[in-house]
């Protein structure tokens, strides 16, 4: 089994001003098999197994929702922005095509 999981979420470490827009970076280990590749040895198609959904929730709102296909690279990096309104976590949830789920968060500090 390939390396999988170990989700990481990173936001600004310094406190933000209210209304400031902040970059959030995420990373997770995942094979992101498209279902279109063949095993070089056996010649058999490698079954699809990729992250199909990433949701970032902040302040009770799903701020960014990503729906992916197998064309996203292995061990996907993904960054996006949030508007910092109050201190609290940005909760990120990844789900893959086998129903496996990972969660990780970054704490946002607002002055």
């Amino acid at each position: 089994m390939a390396d999988i999981g170990e989700p990481k979420v990173r936001g600004p470490e310094k406190p933000l001003k209210k209304g400031e827009v902040a970059l959030i970076k995420t990373l997770i280990k995942h094979p992101m098999e498209s279902g279109l590749r063949k095993d070089k040895g056996s010649g058999e198609t490698i079954p699809a197994h990729y992250i199909e959904s990433v949701v970032a929730e902040y302040g009770g709102v799903a701020v960014v929702k990503a729906t992916w296909t197998g064309a996203v690279s292995k061990n996907p990096f993904f960054s996006f922005y949030i508007k910092a309104d109050k201190s609290g976590p940005v909760n990120v949830t990844w789900k893959d095509t086998k129903g496996q789920e990972w969660k990780e968060k970054a704490e946002i500090k607002v002055e």
Binding site: A22, G59, V63, V64, K65, A66, T67, Y81, K83, A84
Partner: peptide
């Protein structure tokens, strides 16, 4: 490749 849904809170 993918679709991304935003909200005003995305900033």
């Amino acid at each position: 490749v993918g679709k991304f849904e935003f909200t005003p809170e995305s900033g």
